[in-house]
Amino acid sequence: MEKKGALLLALLLMASYVAYATDPTQLQDFCVGVNNPVDGVFVNGLFCKNPIQATPDDFLFKGLNIPRNTDNKQGSNVTLVNAANLPGLNTLGIALARIDFAPYGLNPPHTHPRATEVQTVLEGTLYVGFVTSNLPNGKNQLFSAVLYPGDVFIFPQGLIHFQFNIGKTPAVVLVSFSSQNPGVLTIANAVFGPTPPISIDVLTKAFQVDKNVIQYLEAQFSSGNNY
């Protein structure tokens, strides 16, 4: 009995050590270290307001009930509520968003490098899905579903996902994130529209297509022309 108790204690201590030794989750893509603090203007999050000076307005965001303009190439509009426009969220590790879709509007394939996303459909019918990272068999699996009002779907952190309004009427979803600054990386924009552009030799080899195809895609997502 004593041996079992000692073994359990050792396992708990090991688990605690591993958890304690883990780096904290980042809230930005990178944080370049500086030797002189005077040169540093931003840390992993936001500087904190004196709590004595806090007001109810620091914890209030208005207008998420207002439909957004979806007159764009993709037919969708994301209204993000995070620590940048709702200061009271700072350090709490959560954020949310409203996404409006025109009929057949799309929130194109993208990832959130710092957050899991939970989506609740308020209006409309959506086809949604996410793709796994490389599985042991070397393949990627698509998890997809058709959602109706009241349905909830989860997109795990960092995985490519999308939402597509398959209905003839507008759609609205409410989204929650497990980070105050989830970040977003839209795949097509990142691959075909960065500044400076990725070498065309890299892209033609990666996608196994002719250079003309790559050039056409780059023209669609170049600066000022992307979604």
Rank of each mutant, 00 (worst) to 15 (best):
G40M: 06
L46A: 07
A188S: 15
L142F: 11
N90I: 00
N181Q: 02
L126K: 15
E2V: 02
F42R: 14
K211V: 14
K73G: 02
E2T: 03
I198P: 01
P87N: 03
F101E: 11
E218D: 09
P156W: 04
K3S: 06
G88E: 07
G183R: 03
P51Y: 04
Q180R: 02
E218K: 15
G5W: 02
L174S: 05
Y216I: 06
E117I: 08
A15G: 08
Y227V: 12
V34Q: 08
V18A: 02
T204N: 10
A10I: 02
F59W: 12
N90E: 07
T116K: 14
L12T: 02
S178N: 10
Q28T: 05
A10S: 09
I214S: 10
N85Q: 02
T116G: 08
C31E: 00
Q163R: 10
V128P: 09
P51L: 04
S16E: 00
F42W: 13
I52R: 09
D57Q: 14
K139H: 09
F61Q: 10
K49L: 02
M14N: 02
I154V: 15
L7W: 05
G224M: 00
F59T: 06
P136S: 13
K3V: 05
Q208P: 03
A97W: 14
G167P: 07
I166T: 13
P197V: 04
G105F: 12
A19N: 01
S222R: 11
S76T: 14
V128F: 12
T22H: 01
I187F: 14
I200L: 06
F207K: 13
F153W: 12
P108V: 13
T25V: 00
L96S: 14
V146P: 05
V81Y: 05
L159F: 11
L106H: 13
N35Y: 07
P24F: 01
P182E: 04
I160C: 09
F221D: 12
T204P: 08
I52H: 05
Y127I: 05
N140M: 09
E117V: 11
F47W: 02
P103N: 10
P37E: 09
N44E: 08
N82D: 14
L159D: 02
G124C: 06
A21S: 08
A84M: 04
G5I: 00
I198F: 10
I52Q: 12
A15S: 13
I200Y: 01
G5L: 10
D57P: 00
